[in-house]
Amino acid sequence: MTQYPSLAAFLKDRATLLAKGPVALVLVEDEVEIDTTLRHHLDCGFRAVVALLPDSFAIAADVAKQVHRVSFDCSEPNVVFAGLNQIIAAAAPGCWLYYCYNAEYLFYPFCETRTVNEMLLHHTEERREAMLTYVIDLYAGDLNSHPDAVSLEDACLDRSGYYAQGRMDPATGQSRDRQLNFFGGLRWRHEEHVPAQSRRIDRIALFRAKPGLELLADHTFNDQEYNTFACPWHHNLTAAICSFRAAKALKRNPGSTFDIRSFKWHNSAPFEWHSRQLLDLGLMEPGQWF
């Protein structure tokens, strides 16, 4: 669609691109599964899909016609979060935004037949400004055939081993209302290779922009209500981001790659690329949306 030479140039078009949403922001860290990630989110029905990536990374011609390309280096986390906060500040209040990385795929209840906009309209009617997403680790079943741990055809996930702990408020020492830290997947099974601050699998990946809102380095927001998993009166929708990101990192890291011969264990299951599997495993919640 459009190519922007910088984030600043992209933000000049905010009246057009960041007026209503939902807008998907895909942060491209490497050249793994760029096209499939962008195609997947185009199929979800986002009003705009924005790819932030270096100029040297290629996008397939059919995909390039449908996405907005922004020249941006996603290799430094601090730069990434600063860039996301600039986008949040530039977006119109109430505009729904979503962010993920390449080789990550959004799934939500009934996504095979309903668009992300339909889901967010319902979520907005329930007076929710943000949605909790669980980052579910995917990994290749055969690392001999796929040494980078990425394979869409041979993708596996963990069907158990997920748990939550109360999230404490450091100022009061009390548990924060309707907030939990979630763990599981590869970050739990191989936690000796994962920094403590990177072990959580919860991410508020869908949210509405508003003045003063800031995304923090731990994937939470400075507005505590945005970090809640549900409203006070009933369960709300949640979604899942099925992600090869942890598997890629564990196989690229010299400190872990030789210790891990296979990611499969007795609780591995083939990933079916369907929301029903995630619902059946309790990895996302339909709430009151039928």
Rank of each mutant, 00 (worst) to 15 (best):
Q3R: 15
Y4G: 06
P5T: 14
S6L: 09
A15Y: 10
K20W: 03
V23W: 05
E31H: 04
E31S: 03
I34L: 05
I34H: 04
T36Q: 10
T37R: 02
R39A: 00
G45L: 04
A51E: 12
D55Q: 14
A58Y: 15
A58V: 12
I59C: 13
A64Y: 08
Q66N: 08
F72L: 04
C74Y: 01
S75K: 11
E76Q: 06
P77A: 07
N78D: 01
A92V: 07
G94E: 03
G94C: 04
G94L: 07
Y98F: 15
Y98R: 12
Y99C: 06
C100A: 14
Y101P: 03
A103D: 07
E104V: 05
L106Q: 09
F107H: 14
P109K: 14
E112W: 08
R114Y: 10
T115V: 08
M119S: 06
H122D: 02
H123W: 11
R127C: 08
M131Y: 07
T133P: 15
Y139I: 07
N144G: 09
H146T: 10
P147Y: 08
V150L: 02
L152Y: 07
E153T: 05
A155W: 10
G161Y: 04
G161D: 01
Y163P: 02
Y163G: 02
Y163R: 10
Q165D: 12
G166S: 13
D169Q: 07
P170D: 02
P170Q: 03
R178N: 08
L180C: 04
N181M: 14
E191F: 15
E192L: 09
E192S: 08
Q197M: 11
R199D: 01
I201D: 00
D202K: 13
R203K: 15
R208Y: 02
R208A: 00
G212Q: 05
H219F: 12
N222F: 13
E225H: 14
Y226W: 13
F229Y: 14
C231M: 08
P232L: 05
C242W: 05
A246Y: 00
K248R: 06
L250K: 12
R252M: 04
N253E: 03
P254L: 10
G255T: 10
G255K: 14
T257C: 09
F258Y: 12
F263I: 03
K264Q: 13
W265I: 06
W265Q: 08
N267E: 11
P270Y: 13
P270L: 13
Q277T: 05
D280K: 15
Q288W: 01
